Simulated assay, not measured.
Amino acid sequence: MGYDIEQYESLALWIGLAILFFFIGMAIQDVLKRGKVPLFGRIFVWIVLFTGCAGFIAKGIIQFIYETQGLG
C-alpha cells in the first residue's frame, strides 16, 4: 500500500514541475513581448530555456533507468 503512495507522490512532483516550467515559459514570453526584444534575442532565450528543460528531462530519464535496474 505504501508503494502506491510513493508512486502518486512522484507523479504529482513531475506534474507539478511540468506546470512550473509552463508558467516560467509564459512569464518569459510576456517579458519578451513587453520588452520588444529583437528576434535574435527571443530565439536565444528560447534555446536556453529549451536546453535547460531538456537537461532536466534527461536527468529524470537517466535516474529512472538507474532505479529500475537497481543501481540507485
Rank of each mutant, 00 (worst) to 15 (best):
L32F: 00
L13W: 05
G70Q: 09
Q69T: 15
G72A: 13
I5C: 09
M26V: 14
L49N: 00
V37Q: 03
F23Y: 03
G16A: 03
L20D: 12
Y3L: 11
P38I: 04
I61G: 06
A54W: 06
L17T: 09
K59H: 08
G2T: 10
V37E: 04
K59Y: 15
K59D: 12
L49Y: 00
Y3H: 14
V48I: 08
Y3M: 12
A58C: 04
F23P: 03
G55A: 01
G16K: 01
F64D: 02
I5T: 13
R34E: 09
G2V: 10
C53M: 04
R42D: 10
V37N: 00
I24E: 04
M26W: 07
I61L: 02
E67V: 08
V31Y: 09
G70L: 10
I5F: 12
T68F: 14
G35H: 04
G41N: 02
G25T: 04
D4R: 03
K33Q: 07
G55K: 07
L71R: 15
F50H: 01
V45G: 05
L71V: 15
V48A: 01
K33P: 01
G60E: 04
M1P: 10
G16T: 03
F21V: 05
F64K: 03
F44M: 06
L20E: 12
Q29I: 11
M1V: 09
G35W: 03
G2R: 11
L20P: 02
Q63Y: 07
G2P: 05
A58P: 04
M1L: 11
K33M: 09
L49W: 04
Q63H: 14
L11A: 13
A27P: 00
A54I: 01
G70W: 06
I15L: 14
R34I: 13
F40S: 13
A12M: 01
I62M: 02
L17I: 13
L71T: 14
L13C: 15
T51L: 08
M26I: 12
Y66W: 13
Q69M: 14
I5R: 10
T51E: 07
M26N: 10
A18F: 09
F56P: 08
D4F: 11
Q63N: 07
P38L: 11
L71P: 11
G16V: 03
I61E: 03
